[in-house]
Design a protein around this nucleic acid. Structure first.
Length: 936
RNA sequence: GGGCGCAUAACUCAGUUGGUUCAGAGUGGCUGCCUUACAAGCAGCAAGUCGGAGGUUCGAGUCCUUCUGUGCCCA
């Protein structure tokens, strides 16, 4: 079969994904195996796949696929978050555009019907997009934070917390989003430096004196002022404290008070106190028992409490503009100065947040926080990278109560009912219950009035903060609230959470709290924090900047494996990644490399069983192999070669080295690549344990590209139109297959395809469900030996390059006879390997230094490359002299170390021995260089 | 103001408990190759006082102090 020179991912990916899913490989049910579970950070149900998702989910998929290959019961639970504000906004927009309906004209029930319709039609697109990435989620478990069961869990938790007195309703200063007309949690407010103006306004004294000048950036709120505050230590104002001043334009008298909160340095040192519109002013107001005058309505417009009619009904920003004229008109405006300040904006709508006094539901955080903080400090829950502990601790030690009510419809409606009757304060008549009937029972009980009906009750209009549902995610997706002893006890705690550090407070911390509060146990053993994906200019990728590449287009252009490679190759845990298409290009090229290695191997012809063919050519030389190549073991028809026959890696690497059908060279190459693979696997195992996924991938990449393709395949590759021996062929297919398993977690599609191209496989023999190769002990000496061969070959190639000798022109090499050289060449296959890889016509070991040759040193051996050209003696002399300088310096530094008694006495013996060896090698090299120099 | 990071080649970044020839990778650059798997490729090469200064140590890119620059979080 002809294979294209390029790997074409598109149809291959679709086919394999369907195959995996069809065979139920991603399905997990509890069994006797060790579980390995991950719950997906649920993307917004409105979301579409972006770079952050791809990074995040690639990491999860790698971990899940690795666990699956390791024989664990891997379970990855997918799902979406109802994202109350974002989704409600989309639904409102959709109703307006498509249905010509306004939210205000709809009943709550009708709106919710439409919202669910919208969700079913447009929601969860992202889950389908994740399939294109290769995400091996158990789709049968797809969860949604507004599913009936999930909804009920959220309600039950609310009731539970209320019963435990960890939840209360109270009047507090909150962050109000006038655009979405809802309250926001502190975490939903984004602060940024913005240009603003500071208005210096004079408040005249009631006694006709000059009074005081204050500085404010919000002149439109002066009508809500209830006092002027100064610092008690401020000598400028001591005489004023206790006096009354007049608010400009309306001439309402307010007192001047003293409070430590006031910063003497800032502005004029006098501060207007507006408890309704500033959290700090609210605190001051509380301390001094001042009134609260709320002059701004829910929509951000000024209300009639201003008592200054010209600006009533104006938006707060418009009012601010007009205030300038009004203040100038009454000669109260002293000056306006520009300054930079932090402005808080709504994460969702970008509207400037309005501090507002409001009656909301809060979760008490102190009790919840303590075990959650301890868990992380004690590394019960381990953070990767660990420094996020500090960020977490910083926040957890300064917890404020969590405002969980939102003035929206899309979400879990707060299960609290109030008695409608006038005159009763809502606070004293709140009934928290699972449903209206229960609430009614409670109401009757509490009031002693059995005549009450459902009509007398009113349910709280608000819904819960989205995070007040997603903090239950790791428990609820396993139905852990209703069946605490069910499968949740198998999967929980989950193994690892993979998420961006930007939601460490929103979500991670709260999940840990919920875990301990509702199950008495952590929700996950480890948290892997991903960095942010940024563009080349280091900007965060965002829709508004338009700098985020289209995720689907990337998958289309480079293939899922290519994109996965691109994201992972530069994604150390916690570090931001500067995304560049180039990275995906590397990934695509890597797929292509793998593909072409396949083409090479598939192109080999294997002769039918019969007389053995000796693959390694023997060229007579002065070197005699340590012993005659042993013949390969007798083989049964159809049995795999001795070099590959065993299923266990242990046996594979402990085989004696001997020449097989492919000769000593191929035998050496096969052994070497197998041992090198073990070495790579050992590293990968440790990388995985520490979540060093990027290192694991790069390790595999260089093993495959350099060791396997550039060296191994070139070593065993037969000559043009030559067949390959059975043994080498089998060994190659075998190692190639195992490499595909090792790479599969990172690049699932291309590895599955190649796995099937390499051999005819029986139904169900898929790479996706193999056993991950287990690292066993490897022979470092053997690896080092072949490394020396590589160094020598590179040395010869360099001489070639420098002297314009064509790669295909055979060269004659002389090796300076020495003990070390003899030892090297005693290795069977070593010489043949050099002959082939360096393209040599002869290789002699000799005591004589050949004339007219270029020399180089590798290790402590000296090689002469015969050239049919005159040697530039001066240039050669210069080169050798430079090298000599370097080597002498090298020796001096080692001698320095070794002559230091304290070094010799305190450093470990191995280190000292190694220094001695380095010194001896250095001296040998110096001697050789000096010889060369004298002969020139 | 409090806290947390980062600074290594032209660029983007690795570098694990301090110790092998440890100063690395990829990209870019340079030289030469259309070599029968791959030009999305092959062979080779050059570039760094590991931000500055001090300290601990037999030994520091790695640990400590400090300075400078820079980014982020919280207030």
């Amino acid at each position: 079969m002809e294979l294209s020179t390029r790997y074409t991912p598109s149809e291959i990916e679709e086919r394999w994904y369907a195959h995996w899913e069809g065979r139920g490989y991603f399905r997990s049910v509890p069994d006797e195996r060790e579980p390995f579970s991950i719950v997906i950070p649920p993307p917004n149900v409105t979301g579409v796949l972006h770079m952050g998702h791809m990074l995040n989910n690639t990491i999860q998929d790698i971990l899940i696929r690795k666990a699956r290959l390791d024989g664990k019961n891997a379970c990855w639970v997918p799902g979406t978050d109802h994202a109350s504000i974002a989704t409600e906004a989309k639904v409102v927009h959709w109703l307006r555009e498509e249905k010509k309906l306004r939210k205000v004209d709809l009943t709550r029930e009708a709106f919710m019907d439409y919202a669910y319709q919208w969700k079913d039609k447009y929601g969860g697109i992202i889950l389908h997009q994740l399939r294109k990435l290769g995400a091996s989620c158990d789709w049968d478990r797809t969860a949604f934070t507004m599913d009936k069961g999930y909804y009920d869990d959220v309600i039950q938790v609310f009731i539970d917390l209320y019963k435990k007195d960890k939840l209360y309703r109270g009047l507090r200063m909150v962050n109000w989003d006038p655009e979405a007309k809802t309250v926001l949690s502190n975490e939903e407010v984004i602060y940024g430096e913005e240009n603003a103006q500071l208005y210096h306004i004079q408040y005249k004294g009631v006694d006709g004196s000059a009074g005081v000048t204050i500085a404010t950036q919000r002149p439109e709120t002066i009508f809500a002022d209830v006092a002027i505050a100064v610092n008690p230590k401020d000598p400028r104002y001591t005489s004023l404290v206790g006096k009354q001043v007049l608010i400009p334009l309306i001439d309402r008298a307010i007192p001047v008070i003293a409070d430590d909160y006031v910063d003497i340095e800032f502005g004029t040192g006098a501060l207007k106190i507006t408890p309704a519109h500033d959290p700090n002013d609210y605190e001051v107001g509380q301390r001094h028992k001042l009134d609260v005058i709320d002059t701004i309505a829910d929509d951000g417009k000024l209300n009639d409490k201003c008592t200054f009619l010209p600006i009533v009904g104006l938006d707060r920003f418009e009012a601010r503009k007009q205030m300038r004229g009004f203040l100038e008109g009454c000669e109260s405006l002293v000056k306006i100065e520009d300054y930079m300040t932090n402005i808080g904006r709504s994460e969702r709508t970008n509207a400037v947040v309005e501090p507002k006094l409001s009656l909301q539901w809060f979760v008490k955080m102190t009790d919840l926080g303590a075990p959650a903080l301890k868990a992380v400090i004690d590394e019960e829950v381990k953070f990767y990278p660990p420094h996020f502990q500090n960020l977490y601790r910083n926040w957890m030690e300064n917890l404020r109560d969590w405002c969980i009510s939102r003035q929206l419809w899309w979400g879990q409606q707060i299960p609290a009912w109030y008695l409608k009757s006038e005159g009763l304060s809502q606070e004293t008549h709140v009934f928290v219950a699972a449903n209206a009937d229960e609430a009614l029972l409670k109401a009757k009980e509490a009031t002693g009035n059995n005549q009450l009906t459902l009509n007398d009750l009113r349910q709280d209009e608000d819904v819960l903060d989205t995070w007040a549902s997603s903090w239950l995610w790791p428990i609820s997706v396993f139905d852990g609230f209703k069946k605490p002893d069910g499968e949740v006890s198998y999967y929980y705690p989950t193994n690892v959470l993979v998420t961006g550090w930007d939601i460490i407070f929103f979500w991670v911390a709260r999940m840990i709290m919920a875990g301990y509060e509702f199950r008495g146990e952590k929700p996950f053993k480890a948290v892997y924090f991903t960095g942010m994906v940024r563009d080349k200019q280091r900007r965060k990728m965002s829709k508004s900047l338009g700098n985020s590449p289209d995720a689907l287009q990337l998958l289309e252009d480079f293939g899922a494996d290519g994109v996965r490679y691109g994201l992972m190759s530069s994604a150390a845990a916690g570090g931001d990644i500067l995304f560049d298409d180039k990275l995906c290009e590397n990934g695509r090229n890597f797929c292509n490399k793998l593909w072409n290695a396949l083409r090479l191997v598939k192109g080999w012809s294997v002769p039918p069983p019969g007389p053995l063919i000796r693959g390694g050519e023997r060229i007579s030389s002065g070197i005699s192999p340590s012993e005659e190549a042993r013949t390969s073991p007798t083989q049964m028809e159809g049995e795999r070669s001795s070099l590959v026959l065993s299923e266990s890696d242990e046996a594979r690497t402990s085989l004696p080295l001997m020449g097989g059908q492919g000769g000593a060279k191929n035998a050496l190459a096969i052994h070497w690549i197998n041992h090198k693979f073990q070495q790579t696997l050992t590293q990968i195992e440790s990388d995985f344990e520490q979540f060093r996924l990027s290192e694991a991938l790069l390790g595999l990449y260089s093993f495959i590209w350099d060791d396997f393709c550039a060296w191994y395949l070139e070593m065993v590759k037969p000559g043009y139109e030559q067949p390959i021996d059975q043994e080498t062929y089998e060994a190659t297919i075998d190692i190639y297959s195992r490499i595909m398993v090792a790479l599969h977690p990172f690049m699932p599609f291309v590895t599955e395809e190649i796995w099937h191209q390499l051999r005819a496989r029986t139904e169900g023999d898929d790479v996706c469900v193999q056993k991950y190769p287990k690292a066993v002990a490897f022979d470092l000496a053997l690896i080092t030996q072949v490394e020396s061969a590589k160094t020598i070959i590179t040395g010869i190639r360099e001489v070639r390059n420098q002297n314009q000798v064509k790669p295909r022109d055979p060269l004659a090499i002389t090796v300076q006879d020495s003990e070390t050289a003899r030892a090297l060449f005693a290795q069977e296959g070593f010489r043949e390997m050099l002959m082939k890889m360096a393209v040599l016509e002869s290789l002699e070991l000799s005591g004589e230094e050949p004339a007219n040759a270029k020399s180089f040193i590798s290790g402590t051996d000296k090689f002469f490359v015969a050239l049919n050209q005159t040697i530039d003696v001066a240039a050669e002399r210069k080169k050798i002299t430079e090298e000599l300088e370097y080597q002498r310096g090298f020796i001096r530094s080692i001698e320095g170390k070794l002559s230091n008694e304290r070094f010799v006495a305190s450093a470990p013996a191995a280190v000292v021995d190694n220094e001695r060896k380095k010194l001896a090698d250095g001296l040998a090299r110096v001697q050789m260089l000096e010889e060369s120099l004298s002969k020139l």
